[in-house]
Design a protein around this nucleic acid. Structure first.
Lengths: 180, 180
DNA sequence: ATTGGATCAATGTGATCACAAAATCCAGAA
DNA sequence: TTCTGGATTTTGTGATCACATTGATCCAAT
């Protein structure tokens, strides 16, 4: 990927392309080598564990804050997203699976009215992006994650401890698969 | 603050200055209005509470991870930093107080070997920067925070629950002062 | 055929320019 | 004195350029 190429792709000059790339680098979504060349960052196992821990810390908190504001329409919408996830899993559409999976989380967290936490979480997602992609590719999921159903159930029941636990499991589950 | 002015200050052109500013904006340290003008972001009480919550979530975790690696030299160094904090407090040097205060935390967290968490925490600090400045200015501290002494004591004793509690208190203490 | 270096193309960085939009300023009138 | 409206300056954005550095390619010698 070259700056000039990116610029030409989007019909702009080098300057905006450079700025966008630098922002991605600043957020950790891309890493730039010593010579300024960009590449997808290689995540060590330690860093992965760290990022998963951050998710495990923040996302249950976001869910807790969303819980009192979660009305029925939201829960139904989450269930619909789960259906989409199942669909992607059936079609072996990895990138769709990941995208709808994150959409599930984001939809829930948007209700938390905590933009800073959400932004932080999305930064972590961005950094996990390439690795998640590689991970789910060799996983061959075939159904919606069990924890997502637990999350919806806990929301319906207003069960905060159960919600936090389900989220923690859902978030750290991916790591366990990679630790093999 | 103008881009051209910043560039001239550092002896560079507009381009690097612009890039630096945009990076600060991306990290939340500055906010840019609709017309691209930069300004120090106005933190609402809700956002402040949120940022404090993030600190309360991540920083005890960082301290926990640093605890098993904390040798005596580190603890002595933390105590020395506490002395510096007391010095700044005595001289009513607000910005020095804040800086050494954060240096205390960063010194501890560096031992955690968790760069992603540390980066995340520093992002939060960056966002809190202007508000902390205003807060401590009208506070007129005169001595080192009690919680810092508790932190050092917990480190010496290897008391993880105490360490987490002390950190949580130290981090959320500032918020309480502002909620007045 | 392989390897070594030398040349060359390509890319990122920083500077400068043109332009549009926004802010400031100044004059004039109520 | 204060408000208003236009003119001027300022400022951010995007484009283009010059340059240094890096990676690649190619040719020659073993």
């Amino acid at each position: 990927m070259t700056l000039r190429g990116i610029g030409k792709t989007f019909g702009v000059s080098m300057t905006p392309a450079r700025e966008a790339v630098r922002r991605l680098v600043a957020d950790g979504g891309l890493s730039l080598s010593s010579s300024g060349r960009v590449s997808t960052p290689e995540l060590s196992n330690e860093r992965l564990e760290e990022l998963a821990s951050i998710r495990a810390l923040i996302e249950p908190e976001l869910a807790s804050r969303a819980l009192p504001r979660a009305h029925l329409a939201l829960i139904d919408r989450l269930q619909a997203i789960n259906a989409s996830i199942a669909e992607c899993a059936a079609k072996h559409d990895d990138v769709g699976y990941i995208r709808t999976n994150l959409e599930f989380h984001r939809t829930l967290y948007l209700r938390a009215q905590a933009p800073a936490m959400l932004a932080m979480t999305e930064t972590v997602w961005l950094q996990l992006g390439p690795t998640m992609r590689a991970m789910y590719a060799r996983l061959n999921r075939t159904e919606v994650p069990h924890n997502h159903r637990l999350i919806v159930a806990a929301l319906r029941a207003g069960d905060e401890p159960g919600l936090r636990l389900a989220l923690r499991s859902d978030v750290t589950q991916g790591l366990r698969l990679l630790a093999v």
